[in-house]
Simulated assay, not measured.
Amino acid sequence: MNRKVGLFFGTFNPIHTGHLIIANHMAEFSDLDEVWLVVTPHNPHKKKSSLLDNNHRLEMVYKACENYHKLKPSNIEFGLSQPNYTVNTLAHLQEKFPTNDFCLIMGEDNLKSFHKWKNHEVILENHEIYVYPRISSGEVKSELTDNPKITKINAPIVEISSTFIRNAIKEGKNIRPLLDREVWKFIDLMNFYKK
């Protein structure tokens, strides 16, 4: 039987306890066998100085996932041409790992704009989507609310943002409870986000 793998995409700049709570909840309280945290690479066409180098962000995801055997870091998008679209990543993964069934994990806020994604119909035709709740406004398109391929998971609502963490570090605040211990040590050692 195929393994069911949930894909949790993010820049993880940095990865924080909110990401881990959601990813672990999906791995433990749904029918997913594993959750891969897919680090989104820096888009060379965008100037984004606040985004750390791809490998530094991947390193933080590795450190954060170390004690969770169902969570795996993934750099699969690093080798794909940019700008990249989720539909291409899914096709690439399915070809590379034919015995896995890949599912998308997304917040309710992303589901609201899902109909604007490139080839979203193709994604929905070939992959399930697992949705976790967010505090947000706006309506989900009606054809997505009752779609059998979309499963809502009653995960904890976590509203921690990487932007908040980066700004807090810059201001010299202690935000250690919001980060995995090893991730915090790495950020501190490397002097990330301090200026």
Rank of each mutant, 00 (worst) to 15 (best):
A91P: 03
Y193H: 06
N191C: 08
F8H: 05
N154F: 01
L71W: 09
D31M: 09
I22L: 01
E121V: 14
Y132N: 00
E159D: 11
D146A: 13
R3Y: 14
M60H: 03
V183T: 03
I22V: 08
E34D: 11
V39G: 07
P133E: 06
S113Y: 12
N43D: 15
W117I: 13
F192A: 06
K118S: 11
I157T: 10
N154V: 08
H45D: 14
H120L: 12
M106V: 00
Y68V: 07
C65V: 10
E171F: 11
K141N: 14
I153E: 00
N2M: 14
F8Q: 08
S142K: 15
G79L: 07
N75C: 13
G6F: 04
K47T: 15
N174D: 12
C103V: 02
V38E: 00
T99D: 12
G18M: 00
K72M: 07
E182L: 15
N119W: 02
K173M: 14
C65D: 07
L58D: 10
H115M: 11
H115K: 12
E66G: 14
Q82S: 12
N54D: 14
I105C: 01
H115C: 07
L124N: 04
G18S: 03
P133W: 02
D180V: 05
N167D: 15
V39N: 02
P41G: 03
K118I: 13
